[in-house]
Amino acid sequence: MFIPVPGAARLVPAFLLATALAAGCGSRAGVVATNPRPAAISSAADSAAAPGATPSAGTAATASSTRSSATAGPGPARTPDPDAALLRQIDSALGSADQAISDATNDLNTKGE
């Protein structure tokens, strides 16, 4: 024999609603929590930073990042390309050298104090 309990009856729809909301937000929360984006963004930045990189490489990585944000699950984490990271670091060091040589050139072109 079923004995209705008014309080519990009110709780059931609330529980269902909360579950539905949690599932809806879960796709975003999942992305934030497990976050596959840094790897994708890092890869995109590495590719974009490389002078030899084609625009499509960066675009593709960005698009991939966007897709993984839009899907519910976090998906497999992407490992940044170690060579791309090294190339980016080389570019950064050579940029510093360029600037320093340029500044030194100006200094040495100074004719007096």
Binding site: Q99, I101, S102, D103, T105, N106, D107, N109, T110, K111, G112, E113
Partner: peptide, 21 residues
């Protein structure tokens, strides 16, 4: 000792010279 405006660099025009005499 002090004279001399820095000559403008031909190779690196973007870097400002430090010697602003």
């Amino acid at each position: 000792a002090f004279a001399a405006s820095p000559a403008p660099s031909k190779t690196a025009p973007s870097a400002p010279p430090l010697a602003q005499s």
